[in-house]
């Protein structure tokens, strides 16, 4: 758990980079710091592992006040991932990943086992990749190594500053998925910086939306999309925030609420989609679709119905628009 208690950061007399920020990242959850460039996301993040000092207020990490802890020890217990991966070119992948365990004095055997486990998490061969150097890996692979390096000593808390920001969209999407998968297994308490709305919606249990160092809203992604607290929030998420919110719902949700269409076995030109697919991707697939019919499959690979643009629109109207208008009245 990470609690920010009225945290303020000043640079000199003039600049207030973070202004009286107060929120908590619950155990095992991902909170995304979101906002335009220069709004204080990085500064806020770096105060947690004391790379920046705190001007006012305090940060409590797992019931300990960060300022009472030794900075070096504190950092070794917090995973840190940055956009430019920060891998050390003079060290092999294995040396890079095992750096913190090495600093902590783990045995060779412990390190070896941990390395193999971590590499399995990201689907890279430990034997092959362990001996390589960072420049021998693709950008996506380097960033994955950056992530598992932060996980190496199994820290309870992770800080991630735009970790996927430098990757191209397709690889970014894949790594985000992969990371969420890993998170389901390791359940870290994560503070994650992003300036990408879609990424924030996808990754966050809760979003902190910042402007000029102040919190505009702290809420779950769906609440933030459906109940923007003020003009800035609704403008930040844009007019298409209803569509954006579709990525928070799956085909399964739609099936539960309004049901799927029947499957016409006589239609030849058919494409399939998984029931766990989110509705935003489903919608873009439907719109690009030349097939006459899109069939939904469950985990047992059975056809359970069809989905159409009309159904998605209906769902959007009932489920999401309904909530939004309710919020404006209430």
């Amino acid at each position: 758990m990470i609690s920010f208690k009225n945290v303020t950061k000043r640079y000199g007399e003039e600049i207030v980079a973070v202004n009286d920020v107060d929120f908590t990242v619950e155990e095992g959850k991902i909170v995304v710091l979101l906002g335009p460039s220069g709004c204080g996301k990085t500064t806020l993040l770096r105060m947690v592992n004391r790379l920046e000092s705190i001007s006012e207020g305090e940060i409590i990490i797992n019931n300990e006040n960060s300022k009472d802890l030794d900075a070096i020890e504190l950092r070794r217990k917090i995973g840190y991932v940055i956009q430019s991966n920060g891998l050390f070119p003079n060290m092999t992948i294995e040396e890079n990943v095992m750096l913190v365990p090495d600093l902590l004095g783990w045995s060779k055997k412990e390190k070896r086992e941990r390395f193999e486990y971590l590499m399995k998490l990201i689907g890279l061969d430990a034997k092959d990749y362990g001996k390589r150097y960072p420049h021998e890996l693709s950008g996506g692979q380097q960033q994955r190594i950056g992530v598992v390096r932060a996980l190496a000593a199994d820290p309870p808390v992770m800080l991630m500053d735009e970790p996927f920001g430098a990757l191209d969209p397709i690889i970014r999407d894949k790594i985000q998925e992969e990371f969420l998968q890993i998170q389901r297994e390791v359940k870290k308490t994560i503070l994650f910086v992003s300036h990408d709305i879609d990424e924030a919606i996808k990754m966050a249990d809760k979003i902190v939306l910042l402007r000029n160092g102040e919190i505009m809203q702290f809420d779950t992604p769906s609440k933030m999309l459906s109940h923007p607290k003020n003009e800035f929030v609704s403008q930040f998420f844009g007019k298409d925030r209803a569509i954006k919110s579709l990525s928070l719902h799956t085909v399964e949700d739609l099936q539960t609420i309004i049901g799927l269409g029947p499957v016409d076995e006589s239609v030849q030109d058919t494409k399939t989609i998984n029931i766990h697919q989110d509705l935003r991707n489903t919608l873009s697939m439907l719109m690009n679709q030349e097939a006459d019919q899109v069939v939904v499959k469950n985990d047992q690979d059975e056809n359970i119905g069809t989905i159409t643009i009309d159904l998605v629109q209906k769902y959007l109207h009932f489920e999401i628009k309904g909530k939004m208008s309710a919020s404006q009245e209430g």
Binding site: E73, I78, I82, G86, L87, F88
Partner: peptide, 14 residues
């Protein structure tokens, strides 16, 4: 690269 030094510090290197 300053980011590399930043990563090193952030990982708790003395």
């Amino acid at each position: 690269d300053k980011n590399m030094i930043d990563a090193a510090k952030g990982m708790g290197m003395k």
